[in-house]
Design a protein around this nucleic acid. Structure first.
Lengths: 233, 233
DNA sequence: TAGATTGTTAATCGATTAACAATC
DNA sequence: TAGATTGTTAATCGATTAACAATC
């Protein structure tokens, strides 16, 4: 029996494998080797084989993986074999984008409601979905047994919304607000912080070497100018 | 001199430290220990000290880090000391959300243009920014010396847009399209794939143990039912 | 000086890569 | 059978954690 407690990095790769299989199946490819999967995904063939082996032996030695069979297994592993109902907090541009994307392009997920506090947004339609006031959330969470939600409200409001969601039974949060949410430890939070992605990209976009060399020089200069400029007075 | 070639994981944490410092400074906190930074960020104090030490000695033994000084250093390390001009490909909901967010909430970045192919979106205003046809992109990239761009176009169009951006001088891409972009190896791509985030969260949201046990059983059953159902005929 | 906290080196842990026997 | 590719074990690499000397 495969051992459990599989690392986060492995789990993050599974949906990528799934997407590639979806594409291959659409192209009517029936069999794929780990080497070819490597080309498509950018991960090494060894890593792909090892990742899959945590969950079972899905391939055929000498041949490769049957795309349909492996896809089916991945769907079950990730837990996508029944559609996941979810809700979106915040119906601004980001909330609207995510709601619409998941409604139309993500067959594994259904958005049952979007909530906002702003009276101007309440009643607005996102495709056929009407934006509801946040007060309705507890009812919807209970009614649909919502376990996963997305938070796209402003940073200031995010903790409050998270508390409400957790209180009524949500187990996993995809958080787009630029704050660290405090939640009980059994609750899973993934942060999709777009500012952080962008800033860390900027690090690489301009001549790293030069910039850091300049920094070193500054720190040097500071030191020699007597101890430290600031000290604590 | 601190050694270079600092790992991606370190770089991804720097913007988080920066954000916390911004908050502390707003609250007029002047001095902070690595232990307190740990509480705010969720990373260990040891890790924070080590991360910072890659770039220099910014703290004061016995006291901690001066918030203003450390913030200034982080800004220079990340490369945020001059505003980064950027462009957004795709003016749908996601593109609009990102454009608006960066224009209004991200002081380190300026969005100089948003592009779309859809004639219905061209001319649309995002705050004071007018959506331009994608054909104008080369001109804008050259004029502003754009090094960083965001891609929010549909999966099908993403590679084409990336090629265009790279061709005209873009060095770093924040890609929201669910595809693996092929780019020359000196170009940096960060994937912000929201579907993958959501799917890997779903893995954790429902009883993992049970699901995987059920899977094991299936695979067992399959094996005993003669070799494999599919084999390659 | 005593107390506190950094910066840095050493130890541990975990994840990736390499190698290869198993087997289709 | 020969060729190919998986699944798995061992080796390596890198990142995190622990420990502590330096020093404010």
């Amino acid at each position: 029996m495969p051992s459990r407690n599989i690392s986060k990095s492995v789990i993050k790769r599974l949906p990528i494998y799934l997407r590639i299989l979806d594409q291959l199946i659409r192209r009517e490819v029936e069999l794929i080797s780990s080497r070819e999967l490597s080309n498509e995904s950018g991960f090494t063939a060894e890593q792909i084989r090892k990742d899959l082996a945590y969950f079972g032996a899905f391939g055929t030695r000498g041949a490769g993986y049957n795309t349909i069979y492996l896809r089916e297994k991945l769907i079950k592993i990730i837990g996508l074999d029944s559609i996941t109902d979810t809700i979106v907090f915040g119906a601004g541009n980001l909330g609207t984008a995510l709601t619409r994307y998941n409604l139309t392009k993500n067959p594994y997920v259904n958005v049952v409601a979007a909530f906002d506090k702003n009276p101007q947004l309440i009643g607005k339609k996102i495709d056929s979905l009407e934006v509801l006031p946040i007060e309705k959330a507890p009812e919807v969470i209970r009614e649909y047994g919502i376990k996963v939600c997305l938070i796209t409200v402003p940073a200031m409001a995010a903790q409050e919304v998270a508390d409400l969601a957790v209180k009524h039974g949500v187990k996993a949060i995809l958080n787009f607000a630029p704050v660290k949410l405090s939640v009980p430890e059994e609750i899973h939070v993934h942060n999709a912080d777009l500012t952080i992605e962008l800033q860390s990209l900027i690090y690489y976009s301009s001549a790293e070497e030069e910039r850091l060399a300049r920094l070193d020089k500054e720190v040097e200069d500071n030191k020699s100018k007597s101890s430290k400029t600031f000290s604590y007075d």
